Simulated assay, not measured.
Amino acid sequence: MTPDEVGEYAESLGQVRRKGTATRPAWYVHDRLVVRLTDPTTAVVRVPLGERDPLVEADPDGFGVPPRMEAHHKVEVYLDRARPESVRTAIHLAWEMQRR
């Protein structure tokens, strides 16, 4: 997926708003992070811990959990390698978790 596609999908979900900067845009629902681009090929998505490992296992080239994220509800997404449907699934999981 491209960064624009990430933004389009995130903004298609109810009550999601874009924040952040031009170089590091982020999308939030109720002021809670859903997804943030860290660079043109990498995004951080906030997902339930119970869903993180299945995401990584289903698309190991597209997702990773760097040591700095291990204790957090976050997964790194490598947009140039991840399957688009996997990225959308992760963003949707984040949206579900954060909109409550």
Results as ranks from 00 to 15, higher is better:
50 G>A: 13
63 F>P: 01
69 M>S: 09
1 M>L: 01
33 L>M: 15
91 I>K: 14
13 L>P: 01
42 T>N: 13
15 Q>M: 02
65 V>F: 00
26 A>F: 04
10 A>F: 08
43 A>T: 06
56 V>C: 07
52 R>Y: 04
60 P>I: 02
96 E>R: 15
3 P>G: 02
41 T>G: 00
94 A>S: 15
84 P>H: 08
86 S>G: 14
35 V>W: 13
85 E>N: 08
58 A>P: 11
11 E>A: 14
44 V>R: 11
11 E>Q: 15
43 A>R: 14
36 R>G: 05
48 P>G: 04
94 A>L: 06
1 M>W: 03
84 P>N: 13
76 E>D: 06
6 V>A: 01
8 E>G: 02
17 R>I: 00
74 K>Y: 11
26 A>E: 10
25 P>N: 14
57 E>P: 02
42 T>I: 06
79 L>T: 09
10 A>Q: 11
26 A>W: 00
16 V>T: 12
52 R>F: 05
10 A>L: 03
36 R>L: 07
30 H>V: 09
26 A>Y: 01
89 T>D: 15
85 E>Y: 06
90 A>C: 14
90 A>E: 07
40 P>V: 09
37 L>A: 02
26 A>M: 11
77 V>M: 09
37 L>T: 06
95 W>M: 11
46 R>V: 05
8 E>S: 13
54 P>Q: 11
14 G>V: 08
61 D>H: 03
30 H>Y: 02
81 R>N: 04
8 E>I: 12
99 R>P: 11
16 V>K: 05
77 V>A: 09
45 V>I: 05
52 R>G: 06
60 P>Q: 04
98 Q>K: 12
27 W>T: 05
84 P>Q: 06
2 T>Q: 10
90 A>L: 05
94 A>P: 12
34 V>H: 07
27 W>R: 08
92 H>I: 02
43 A>I: 02
75 V>P: 08
2 T>A: 07
36 R>W: 01
70 E>I: 14
20 G>V: 01
57 E>R: 08
47 V>H: 07
18 R>H: 09
94 A>M: 13
32 R>P: 04
35 V>R: 11
52 R>D: 01
5 E>N: 07
69 M>E: 02
12 S>M: 01
21 T>L: 08
35 V>P: 12
93 L>R: 13
17 R>V: 12
9 Y>W: 06
45 V>G: 03
92 H>Y: 13
80 D>W: 05
41 T>K: 14
30 H>S: 12
18 R>K: 08
29 V>M: 13
4 D>C: 02
27 W>Y: 15
93 L>T: 07
42 T>Q: 12
50 G>Q: 00
79 L>S: 07
78 Y>W: 12
48 P>Y: 08
61 D>Q: 08
52 R>T: 03
57 E>D: 15
18 R>W: 04
82 A>N: 13
45 V>R: 11
30 H>M: 11
49 L>H: 08
75 V>D: 07
79 L>F: 08
87 V>Y: 11
64 G>E: 07
24 R>D: 02
29 V>T: 11
29 V>D: 02
60 P>F: 09
80 D>M: 03
24 R>C: 07
97 M>W: 13
5 E>S: 13
42 T>M: 04
81 R>H: 06
4 D>G: 03
17 R>C: 00
66 P>W: 05
42 T>R: 09
86 S>K: 12
57 E>Q: 10
3 P>D: 09
61 D>N: 14
81 R>C: 06
70 E>V: 15
97 M>I: 05
31 D>T: 09
46 R>Q: 10
24 R>Q: 14
45 V>C: 14
36 R>Y: 04
82 A>I: 04
